[in-house]
Nucleic acid binder design. Structure first.
Lengths: 353, 353
DNA sequence: ATGAAAGCGCTAACAC
DNA sequence: GTGTTAGCGCTTTCAT
């Protein structure tokens, strides 16, 4: 492992000159540059980035906090972030713990490793009293996390922190939000353009806040905007998994006196379960019933027919996360916030009435 | 940002003493330790890991090379590696480029950032002449990569490099392999125990080497071991995607004079497509035809019925990757190689004849 | 255009 | 048990 000193010695110049050549930072005569380049080549010199970072105070590494990489949506966020980061010469160091304590420890380590910035994608921990782990954290979990995060950040050199979704802490310098509510509305409006009058809704328990609440509000917005009647018996609750959607739909088919012509499902998992249930029960999708999902993960590509869904455009989300961070890092951009607008991804599960 | 000097000054001791307290490296009297701890606390001191690494020559960071995080199988490998790494105090820095050049650049950067070790999970690049990107690289791609990797590694401080699957380079210090061939055989044997005599096989083009070849050989092994006849017309080729499996199965149903009672599909995507096609064509799975897949990714959980499959046990694979690396790092273990044995994951797509 | 000196924040090695 | 010195490999600052 050759160091900069070795190169300097071989080239017969000072280390400073080598540094200048390597970094192209300031003018060096062609002749000396040549000598240095040769020495670099023969020694196979590679700069020690640790040493460089120690003095420049930049690591060109950013930390990404994520709790469930296996979640297809999240892996796409991550993928997009990595791709963008690479384009701009940044590497990603991951934190992906499953409980609060180790996550916090991990965050602290990232700080200690001097990451240039941080992206908080998801904060969601397995909770003893709730085994139906959803991909969205509870309000209490989030607050607890935010609070602990602040304590950690307070001890550290301030760096840009970007979050996906709102967090309540002073250390956030940028934000990416997904317009879930608009998405909820778009689903209804899309079905409306296909002449569906009777629309049902299957969702995880609706909380006031959070993604489930927003999408449901959007559903109501859409129904109102299109002049449709919301029928209580067509609002079904379930666990937010394929199985949950399957059971909910199955029971719905059996118990409902009359089925709506279309159903909006609060996420793709539920929607896929619903499609499976409909088919199992002898209904044809989309001929007998149309189904639309939310998210745009690729689980919707696996069913037959494919799931038409309101995509949150996960790549765009990931790109936005990095882009907002990059703005903070370079201070060139003014954008410290981005809102991702969903779009309908047409596959085969919706058909005109 | 307090440094070790600040703490030393406040505590009225030398930096060395602070270092000793922080690292617990050698004995310090209770009284001074107390003073140091207090100073650490009031200043909110956090060690700069860059500086530490520069002198200890250890970063407690390992590089993971991966080309398709979005692939559910790979994201599980990664997840398992991260979890194991965290347990042992290591962080993961990712390289996930999509073409050869940027991958190599990225690897070089990881070296320059002084990772303690590296895990090469997948090397597979989009190839202009082959749009049907499979998750497994071609022989040429692998050789080109291996060659270039060697050139990079030659210039760097030697560190343990672990690969998933065989690579041909001198710098590999550990290896994790998956027994695909055994898996191929297990599928047949599993179907055999369920009294299936007539077994078909759907696969991507079978090459001599690589995963497709191995699984096919395993299929033949199994058929031989169980005393069954391989019928050429029941060996179907297709693109290794859900769509590919769908089309292949559909055509197979239409063209085959007689269908086998069970089909082994070379991966889960194909198998899921096959299930979809069977159902679309009015066959019941598993009542009319049994289908078994390979891999054990969660796409098989999405269909109805769920896909019974020969799982490569992706978590075990990821854990093994880290574990072999960790052995190399600590030099305690002797295991420099691990072979993962697949296991049958029972869901609902296989039924006794 | 080039170099010398100093220092980033930490720990290893040796003193006492 | 504690402190001193030196140095990890690099860049910054200020000379020349």
């Amino acid at each position: 492992m050759a160091t900069i000193d070795d190169v300097a010695r071989l080239a017969g110049v000072s280390t400073m000159t080598v540094s200048r050549v390597v970094n192209g930072s300031s003018a060096v005569s062609d002749k000396t540059r040549q000598k240095v380049l040769e020495a670099t080549e023969t020694l196979g010199y590679q700069p020690n980035l640790l040493a460089r970072s120690l003095v420049t105070n930049q690591t060109h590494t950013i930390g990404v906090l994520l709790t469930h990489i296996e979640n297809p949506l999240y892996s796409i966020f991550l993928s997009a972030i990595i791709q963008e980061a690479e384009k701009h010469g940044y590497d990603i160091i991951m934190s992906a713990a499953t409980d609060l304590d180790s996550t916090l420890k991990s965050i602290n380590t990232l700080y200690n490793k001097c990451v240039d910035g941080m992206i908080i994608l998801s904060v969601e921990f397995r909770d003893s009293k709730d085994d139906n782990t959803t991909i969205f954290h509870t309000v209490e979990q989030m607050q607890a996390f935010d609070h602990e995060f602040e304590k950690i950040a307070a001890k550290q050199k301030p760096i840009p922190v970007i979050t996906l979704g709102d967090h309540h802490m002073d250390y956030v310098s940028g934000l990416v939000n997904i317009d879930y509510r608009l998405g909820g509305q778009m689903a209804v409006e899309y079905l409306h353009t296909y002449n569906h009058e009777e629309i049902g809704y299957i969702s995880h328990v609706v909380t006031d806040t959070g993604i489930w609440g927003e999408r449901y509000q959007g559903f109501l917005d859409g129904m109102r905007a299109c002049g449709k009647t919301v029928r209580e018996e067509w609002i079904v609750k379930c666990v937010d998994t394929v199985e949950g959607g399957f059971h909910a739909m199955k029971e719905f088919i059996h118990s409902a006196g009359k089925l709506p012509s279309a159903i909006s499902c609060a996420n793709d998992m539920i929607a896929v379960g619903a499609i499976n249930a409909a088919i199992t029960e002898g209904l044809r999708v989309p001929e007998d019933i149309s189904i639309i999902g939310h998210d745009g993960s690729y689980v919707g590509e696996i069913t037959e027919p494919g799931l038409t869904t309101v995509s949150i455009r996960p790549y765009a989300v990931g790109r936005a996360c990095f882009s907002v961070l990059h703005d903070c890092l370079t201070d060139t951009g003014t954008a410290r916030k981005a809102v991702i607008t969903p779009e309908v991804l047409k596959r085969g599960s919706v058909k005109a009435r």
